[in-house]
Design a protein around this nucleic acid. Structure first.
Lengths: 178, 178
DNA sequence: AATAATTAGGTAACTAATTACGTAAATGAT
DNA sequence: ATCATTTACGTAATTAGTTACCTAATTATT
């Protein structure tokens, strides 16, 4: 039991980040193990294109809840690997349509096998847990999505001294949300 | 239900990362709300020092399971904010001992109040969930820590073509772990 | 006592994302 | 038809870490 675990609900973000990174590393190992030159971070974009055929940068960004520069970056890498290609959209010249290349399509059946295997293993591990992480995560995603986390913090008075850039001391009392 | 959620156990790492980032952002909001100039990423180092008094870079890194350059970076920021100080250890000249500064100690009671508040809110949210995330996370941390994740992947035969740098095609059959 | 190995800490370069900002194309308002 | 707004994409700078590599100090080996 390390110090972060002891802190429970307080350090939950760090723990989830750490766990997420561990899972990602395992993913990388699995691809390597099956001899496929593929990085876990490419999965989401590649998967979207495999499912939807053609997509613009923004469409993918919205699907994955990433920013569009992140998608551009991932698309560049996938393009460099020859797994996807892109062309200007005819009906809207602002858009660049991405889709799997011939090589990307050829790889797909293999990837699907591997994904299915990963899904099985992960599901097995998760279902072995008494408290199911996947459903717990779903619950939490929904609670947090309510977006009013800060509204819980109205309980105690607290005199705060704020040193401003111009060395003016401001005393503020926080009892209600602004 | 977005595309990552639909993928369940396959995209669990991305989802945890996203969730972790959302919680971190909320943490930043809470500090701002209480008028404290403090970033969530400083919490772990500051907390360790508040609990243990004096610590070297490596001690903190091991406690938090961060790399030592990460701790150096965080320590620099905390030092710049005047919340911690450091001095060469007398008994071991390689070591640099970190500890809370006067200002850092003065801030501590406020921080402890805020942490307690955050802990209460997070605990409330998490306990409202049918499947408890905290215990689920603990279970998963333990399962994954077993370090033999890859050993689950011995189930299907898979002919892999590896194009090596010298354009030699190698066919390998993966049925057992190397 | 000299040398080898380990440990503590530091720096640099990289990574995977972000925010901030800019431009061109399409859409909407008048 | 023109001008303002929005949308799609791109680039640059920033962030919060990492890995790789380095030096200096300590500890272990002979």
């Amino acid at each position: 039991m390390d110090i972060l675990s002891e802190l429970g609900a307080l350090a939950i973000a760090s723990r989830m980040k750490r766990m997420s990174e561990a899972i990602m590393r395992s993913g990388a190992e699995v691809y390597r193990y099956y001899g496929v030159d593929f990085e876990p971070k490419w999965f989401a974009v590649y998967y979207c294109l495999s499912e939807k055929g053609e997509l613009g940068i923004m469409e993918i960004a919205e699907m994955l809840k990433l920013t569009h520069p992140a998608v551009i970056q991932l698309a560049k890498e996938l393009e460099k690997k020859g797994l996807i290609g892109s062309k200007k959209s005819v009906e809207d010249a602002r858009k660049r349509k991405l889709k799997l290349s011939k090589k990307g399509l050829e790889l797909l059946p293999k990837m699907q096998k591997i994904w299915e295997e990963i899904r099985l293993v992960n599901t097995k591990i998760i279902e072995n847990q008494e408290h199911n992480l996947l459903t717990a995560l779903e619950d939490l995603e929904n609670s947090w999505a309510e977006k009013d986390y800060l509204s819980h913090f109205t309980k105690f008075d607290f005199e705060v001294e704020l040193k401003e850039s111009k060395n003016i001391k401001i005393k503020e009392q926080y009892t209600k949300r602004p």
